[in-house]
């Protein structure tokens, strides 16, 4: 019975951790959207900033991946 409670807690925690991925999605969308609006204003400068955009995406996406990892850990490793 106690095991079931632990498991339930773990699953609820995993589900909660998945909300972090939504945040990462918002973040990535924000980065790309702002890049795009800037690029449309000044298309000549856009190619040079492509790398910066990808770095920004990587950083904000990493946090979503962390929450995903927490969810996985809760589901499989706790």
């Amino acid at each position: 019975m106690e095991g079931d409670v632990v498991q339930m807690g773990a699953y609820i925690g995993a589900g909660l951790a998945c909300t972090g991925m939504g945040g990462a999605a918002v973040g990535v969308g924000h980065v790309v959207g702002n890049f795009l609006s800037g690029a449309l204003r000044n298309p000549s400068a856009a190619p040079g900033q492509m790398a910066t955009m990808f770095i920004g995406i990587a950083f904000s996406e990493a946090l979503g991946i962390f929450s995903f990892l927490v969810a996985l850990l809760l589901m499989f490793a706790v």
């Binding site: 950083f59 996406e61 990493a62 991946i65 962390f66 990892l69």
Partner: peptide, 11 residues
């Protein structure tokens, strides 16, 4: 972050 980003994305 460098390692978990890659592994996490792939996984």
């Amino acid at each position: 972050s460098h390692s978990i980003r890659l592994a996490g994305n792939m996984m």
